[in-house]
């Protein structure tokens, strides 16, 4: 393929990416160096790194970062482990019932995120069915505090994201060749050994892929925080995205909100770089 033909093929997507991703990113960087609200939208005031300084010295930012990290380090492994277990179980099922199980397992993923979070919240509201059951069956009064609300947010995150990991891994399992499994059986490998030495290596690239996407998703979690905390600071469950939202919508400090957004991008890149390097090396090895 000539260079000119190659350029013609890639030009449309490159231009679109420049317009939709690179341009807004640079605009955001530019705005982050300004003091800008709705009142001076056309006359932003250059303040250099002041927004970054304010964000980085704000305890609320670090508190929200801490919870974001906690959310991420719990959700990502949990969804991979649970997704893998469910995918393995589904793989054992044969016949039409498998479709029904797959559809049922995917339900949390199909439901609109905010609706899912709202339903989840109502289960544990003072008049909700879970609260009622806990009270009736165990005489336990569920009290909403920072521990229970944070736990609910994480539980909701696992419930919501596991189906995605499950379906990806299930698809991966369908491509597993029978020969290595049969060879392992002949060699006397038990079920756990087959999983450890045959299945997991086969799915390795998918685990990296799921981790990559899940980390990004977990880092920018917003809907469930907004719904489940009911914006109550008492629960100490703000995430970076929610902190950003408050800065933009409540304080209308758009420059500072953009600074948070840029810091978020930098944060995601720092976390993802090891994964990206690993994926790149793997690709190179496969060539």
């Amino acid at each position: 393929m000539s260079r000119q033909t190659f350029l013609r093929f890639v030009a449309p997507s490159t231009i679109l990416m420049l317009l939709l991703m690179v341009l807004p990113l640079f605009t955001s960087i530019w705005l982050s160096f300004h003091f800008i609200t709705y009142r001076n939208l056309h006359d932003p005031q250059w303040i250099g790194l002041a927004n970054y300084r304010e964000v980085l010295t704000d305890p609320a930012f670090w508190e929200s970062l801490r919870f974001t990290m906690l959310y991420m380090v719990t959700i990502v492994p949990a969804q991979i482990v649970l997704g893998f277990i469910v995918a393995m179980l589904l793989d054992q099922i044969e016949g039409r019932i498998r479709g029904v199980y797959i559809a049922a397992s995917l339900l949390p993923f199909i439901v609109t995120p905010v609706v899912g979070a709202l339903v989840f919240r109502h289960l544990f509201d003072p008049n909700g069915p879970c609260t009622y059951l806990l009270k009736t069956l165990f005489h336990y009064k569920l009290a909403m505090n920072s521990t229970t609300v944070r736990a609910l947010i994480i539980l909701h995150g696992i419930w919501y994201t596991t189906p995605w990991a499950m379906i990806v891994l299930f698809a991966g399992l369908q491509t597993l060749p029978q020969e290595p499994m049969e060879a392992a059986t002949v060699d006397g490998a038990n079920w756990i050994q087959k999983i450890w030495y045959v299945v997991l290596p086969h799915l390795r690239s998918l685990f990296v892929f799921i981790s990559l996407i899940s980390i990004m998703d977990a880092y920018r979690v917003f809907d469930s925080i907004y719904v489940l905390t009911k914006q109550n600071p008492l629960y100490k469950a703000d995430t970076i995205m929610y902190y950003n939202f408050k800065m933009a919508m409540s304080y209308q400090d758009l420059g500072k909100a953009n600074a948070i957004a840029i810091l978020t991008v930098i944060g995601i890149m720092i976390i993802l770089i090891p994964f990206l390097i690993s994926t790149y090396r793997q690709q190179m090895e496969e060539r």
């Binding site: 509201d125 009290a143 505090n145 009911k230």
Partner: peptide, 11 residues
Amino acid sequence: GQEGLTWSIDD
């Protein structure tokens, strides 16, 4: 009480 702190307007 602490329980009442969670009562929303809907509740």
